[in-house]
Design a protein around this nucleic acid. Sequence first.
DNA 1: TTGCCTTATACCCCAATGGGGTATATAATA
DNA 2: TATTATATACCCCATTGGGGTATAAGGCAA
Lengths: 98, 98
Amino acid sequence: MSSVSKSLLQGAQEALDYAEGNTKGSKTRHVHVPKQIDVKSIRETLHMSRSEFSSHFGFNPRTIEKWEQGVRQPDGSARAYLTVISKNPKAVERALKQ
Amino acid sequence: MSSVSKSLLQGAQEALDYAEGNTKGSKTRHVHVPKQIDVKSIRETLHMSRSEFSSHFGFNPRTIEKWEQGVRQPDGSARAYLTVISKNPKAVERALKQ
DNA sequence: TTGCCTTATACCCCAATGGGGTATATAATA
DNA sequence: TATTATATACCCCATTGGGGTATAAGGCAA
């Protein structure tokens, strides 16, 4: 399967999951954390090398390397964190520096 | 060793690491991510149950449970994320909701 | 009272991950 | 030229993430 098809399927599945979550009447608003995440594009959008990205956000550079090469997949907490970074990197940097 | 002693030693070690990092003339400013982190106190400061905390920040509730009970230690990325949450939870929530 | 739901502790289990070591290659910079 | 930064690519393994299940206690509604 192409990576585009995979992406589309993933999106569809997530939409289903989300709808299901709603119809089941959960009380807390669940935050959306994608099951797959493109670490390299997040990093490149910020114009940072791997070591810059790592030291700015508190990652181990080896871990970033593995994620970007597809050798490992970021676990749930890491995906949540990466999502936050991708949406508001400056807020994250500010929080970590203070 | 008492947990207090452990804390003191840890702090000292981190100070050393930090100083070393500086004297070695690294160009990028390294962000400080503690090697141990009190997940429960972060959560309780926010007045959230484990499931609330999980759904607000994209964690798996089982993972939070393990961390708080000391059964598991959050890995590096999780500690960085938890640090950000503890310093600016609202910014994180905003980022995840948008 | 009884029953239900939420929260929390406490086990077992295991594939997958995080993170370290090391080697190689290339582009940039001094 | 030599050196440094960046990146790919292996090996390795203790630790983690996350799921299953059982128990117990507090709050709340019927």
